[in-house]
Design a protein around this nucleic acid. Structure first.
Lengths: 334, 334
DNA sequence: TTCAGATGCGCAAACGTTTGCGTTACTTAT
DNA sequence: ATAAGTAACGCAAACGTTTGCGCATCTGAA
């Protein structure tokens, strides 16, 4: 059977209170006795039951990661890998555990049943439920990624608008006149930022009369393949494609290859995100870098402050994005 | 403040026991009263505190995912995405939460402090600690992926040996005489299976006297790039490279591209895993398909049986792998 | 009409911790 | 020498549930 605090107490001829205090570095126990208790705990392999501990301390020692898009979406999107990396940079040696929730139900349960001390929310979209409830409850939580800026909650997000603006500007400055946008779903705030930036850049370069084509899909390679195929099938083909996401760009790569189109000779493409794989594509992908790890780091820091209850100011951080040019765009001449 | 069971009881003029029974569909409460209680619980937004519940029921409603390789390793390896997909197919509507642990410390805490009801372990390698402890304790747990077969614990794994055997055979049958292996670390059981299969195939085709080169690295694209570069720098170059992992293959693609080598014209490559991205590479990757989702499904099923305590038989499942040929290998002629 | 068995419900103990408070023994200042 | 203070420890309550048991009340069969 598992060894409990009372077993320890009995074997040492002391009380549970003293054992508890000793193990928690609380005052009120002599150094001599504390040492004995610690040793005995080690020897007998004692570890405090979490349920009991949570019950009395009103704190759980784990933080929730909410991604209302399903487990697969999380795991197959390098964005999370990177952001989580930053999060774990600050959280890991604080001894927290991560608990994952991908459905509104799980999410609700998390913060309503004292399952976690704080929540980091990803990939929120228009109409995702239970955000408001969280907001009102004052539960420690942070949003990471583009989301409704009017929502009254700490958030750290990338400047998606500037990123896409720089990307399309680059394409235009390289001489491209017919630039298409393979976008994400418009329920995503990132997608609307991308769309706005795309339009503005086109207008500023007086290209919108020549060609304007923005189509919405999902943030996955499958959509890039499908969307690019559709684009290629039209009589009036673009010479460059901007993608809202590196995964979409991968799909474009595939579509081009299947049709014998060379990148960047026949078609230029720029991605978004600068996922680790961007540099492994052939040709390597020109894309806009999003400081995902740094964002994760910041989000985690904000969250721990929230959990400590120290900072109750609404923290909003905006991270710069920047175009990194590699091999997938060429200068376009008539 | 959060509404507790006693608030519900008071507001209905009944007792906590009855409320508890009503909400848990336990017998001993009239349908009429049960309906009233359920309604009131709904209205007041009652949800049972997990800590208290766990404490008395000795069960937590969440399952642990242990990957002793660090958070980044998990999140950036499509293997997990796929396996988790299978797991969630069976687990998700059972209402469990996932709790992630990537360090031995977290892992130990998980099953020693009643934090989870069961554990699924990934990517185990030689020398990973705390496995034995788990084994002895009889804690419900499953291993997924190649691991020491002599360990006395339920496990579901792919037939990595046959997979690599088929891959190298294919290369040999396509006329390649100089075949290299870019392997994973030898602390991984998968790597040693790959190495054995590679050697056997070479011997059977009487190729081992001509050329034999197996080098160990990590299961990441960086290693594929580095390893391939090293291979290309030698005077006696291979005409084909077998990789222990699709990510490694991506690295090889990159190395080839940087050097102006065409795949498969100048160099053939076969991967392992059949990650979703394999089909998006240009050219698409010939690789060994591993039924990851199916494995996850099976692992989860075994785990829930273990947790129910029904099946105490040691369950070992071996999943077939199969070569899927695409575009990255060509017939080799002198 | 009576009695055995259901049925519906409440009391209180239990789960394994933490912690406020009281008690004792010991120190230090007066 | 006495008072006041402090340090070390134990008692017992509390955290919010679930559940064994006992007590009524009600049912239907003898």
């Amino acid at each position: 059977m598992k060894v409990k605090i009372i077993d320890l107490a009995k074997s040492l001829g002391t009380s549970t209170s003293t054992v508890s205090r000793a193990l928690n570095d609380a005052p009120g126990v002599s150094e001599e006795l504390r040492a004995k208790i610690v040793k005995a705990a080690r020897d007998m392999g004692y570890m405090p039951d979490q349920g009991a501990r949570n019950l009395v301390k009103r704190t759980t020692g784990n933080i929730g990661l909410y991604v209302p898009r399903g487990l697969f979406f999380v795991m197959s999107n390098p964005f999370f890998a990177q952001v989580l990396l930053g999060i774990s940079d600050v959280i890991d040696d604080m001894g927290y555990n991560y608990i994952l929730s991908t459905s509104p139900l799980q999410h609700r349960k998390m913060f309503r049943t004292n399952l976690v001390d704080g929540i980091i929310m990803f990939a929120l979209r228009l109409g995702d439920p239970y955000i408001r409830e969280l907001e009102e409850g004052g539960f420690p939580s942070v949003i990471v990624g583009s989301y409704n800026p009017s929502v009254d909650m700490p958030a750290v997000r990338p400047d998606d608008y500037q990123g896409m603006y720089a990307a399309v500007n680059h394409l235009a400055e390289m001489g491209h006149k017919k630039i298409a946008l393979l976008n994400g779903p418009l329920s995503s705030f990132k997608s609307v930022a991308c769309l706005d930036a795309y339009r503005r850049s086109l207008m500023e370069h007086e290209l919108d009369d020549i060609y304007e084509k923005a189509v919405s899909g999902e943030f996955v390679a499958e959509w890039g393949l499908e969307g690019a195929n559709a684009l290629f099938n039209e009589k009036d083909r673009p010479s460059a494609i901007a993608c809202a996401n590196d995964l979409i760009a991968m799909g474009v790569y595939r579509a081009a290859h299947e049709r014998g189109l060379k990148i960047p000779d026949d078609i230029s493409v720029v991605g978004f995100g600068d996922f680790p794989s961007a540099v492994y594509l052939s040709p390597s992908l020109t894309t806009v870098h999003t400081p995902m790890r740094e964002m994760g780091y910041e989000a985690a820091k904000v969250l721990v402050e929230k959990m400590k209850g120290t900072s109750s100011v609404e923290h909003k951080a905006l991270f710069q994005t920047s175009l990194v040019v590699r091999e997938s765009v060429r200068r376009y001449e008539e």
